[in-house]
Amino acid sequence: MNGMLSRAVTGAATVARGVRDDQLDLPAPRDGFGVRELLGHLAWTAAMLEAPARREQPPPGRRMGVFGEEMPVAEDASPFERALGLSGRDPAWEP
């Protein structure tokens, strides 16, 4: 693993281990994400990176709670909008 990624993983693991159960429902620094969702995202990302090294298929994101329920998209939706819908993100959302 390259040095920068190794340091990032070590730092993230240290922070994640320090999260208490009573902190899981607190907001994370990113709007719309809680601590629980952020940790779920980190766990899924780690599984996605680890699976190829083990010559395994990565786990489905929806099963790990990374993706929400599929969102409907228009018939003429672009491939990107369809991907957003599949991942549980609203393609019509705007900041």
Rank of each mutant, 00 (worst) to 15 (best):
D21S: 11
M71F: 11
S78G: 00
L42C: 07
A74F: 00
E56R: 02
V9A: 15
G85S: 09
M4H: 15
S78M: 00
L26G: 05
R17C: 14
E75I: 00
F67D: 08
F67Y: 12
G85R: 01
P58D: 12
D22Q: 14
E56T: 02
R20K: 05
L5C: 15
P29T: 11
Q23A: 06
A43D: 15
R17I: 03
A51H: 10
L84E: 13
F67I: 01
P95K: 03
F80R: 13
R62A: 14
L49G: 10
A13L: 15
A43W: 09
E81P: 13
V66G: 10
G18Q: 14
P52A: 03
E56W: 06
G40Q: 13
P72C: 01
L49I: 11
T14A: 04
S78A: 04
V9E: 13
L24I: 06
D31W: 08
R20H: 05
L86D: 04
D25H: 05
A53V: 08
L42V: 12
A43F: 02
A13N: 15
P91I: 00
M64Y: 02
G88F: 09
E70S: 05
A77D: 01
A47R: 02
D22L: 09
M48W: 14
Q57T: 00
A43M: 11
W93S: 11
E94P: 02
E56S: 05
L38S: 04
A12W: 13
E94D: 01
Q23M: 09
R17G: 06
D90P: 00
A51W: 04
P95G: 07
G18S: 11
L26C: 00
V15F: 15
P91S: 07
A16W: 07
R63V: 15
E75G: 08
